[in-house]
Design a protein around this nucleic acid. Structure first.
Lengths: 144, 144
DNA sequence: GTTGACCTTAGACCTAACTCTAAGGTTTAT
DNA sequence: ATAAACCTTAGAGTTAGGTCTAAGGTCAAC
């Protein structure tokens, strides 16, 4: 039975974060002392490590909640459910990458266009490009 | 002289957003009616469009503030200042892309490993991988 | 002369995942 | 028996960029 600081040391998640995860239903202490101190079992440690690994893989806390509910009753859930969550996450990540790559492109073009020297910015081509408003190649964000 | 809704129509930025930008020092109405209505000049429109273009290129509102202060006094600022801001932003974007690509990798490996079929998740290799905790290949986020 | 569309402000709310604080109770070591 | 180090809770604060609401003033049309 570990106290919260001990679980924190084992997992690298701060005690604050562990309480935060508990509030959001991810990790609960299996037991409490009379004074209310949280006590964690080995199973709790494994659950916490699962959460940490999933988080590091890019899953949101909400995703992790779903994965955990599959985890506690694997017989009632299919591989497909697991891959669905994973695929959705991958799509999300791919979308973000595409958006960022579009920005990357824009920024690289801007940088290429400008001398970057000590002369004043009166004819700076980056400023000019931003002034123009590059309607064709925008960074993927829609006009709100 | 345009009212806020007209500037909104010209730029595609909502009136709410325009006021929000004003609060943050990006766009100010050149004039006000007696009743306090904002009135925007052509120069204001160009400034608003500059802000929008910069935002779509990936610059934060803080970056845009810097770019705007260069813009109003180009003689006192160098191309280098402009490229510095741009390069910093590009580095930031590259960093985010790298982080996301690491997650992408992890997720693709997970997806590849699992059949994704209707069988129950008892031996699901995604669940197993998350259970193991892939210490070598993590998604770039540090243990806080 | 009043309806409806527009404008004003200050300030609350949103997401996501923490992070910290205040105010207090517990445990351990000396 | 007391100080240090730990634990508890509820709730506020953080970041970024909006988004929305309430409560009210203004303006144009019919």
């Amino acid at each position: 039975m570990l106290k919260i600081s001990e679980l924190s040391a084992r997992t690298g998640l701060s005690a604050h974060t562990l309480r935060f995860y508990e509030k959001h239903g991810l990790i609960t202490a299996s037991d409490r002392s009379e004074a209310g101190y949280r006590f964690y079992t080995d199973a709790d440690v494994r659950r916490a490590e699962f959460v940490k690994t999933a988080r590091n893989s890019g899953f949101s806390l909400e995703d992790i909640g779903q994965l955990l509910s599959i985890r506690v009753d694997k017989l009632s859930h299919s591989c497909q459910e697991v891959t669905d969550i994973t695929r959705l996450k991958l799509d999300e990540v791919n979308g973000k990458i595409a958006e960022l790559q579009s920005m990357q492109q824009t920024l690289m073009i801007l940088l290429d266009s400008c001398c970057g020297g000590p002369e004043n910015a009166t004819h700076c081509s980056i400023m000019e490009a931003l002034e123009e408003g590059e309607s064709r190649k925008n960074a993927g964000r829609e006009t709100s």
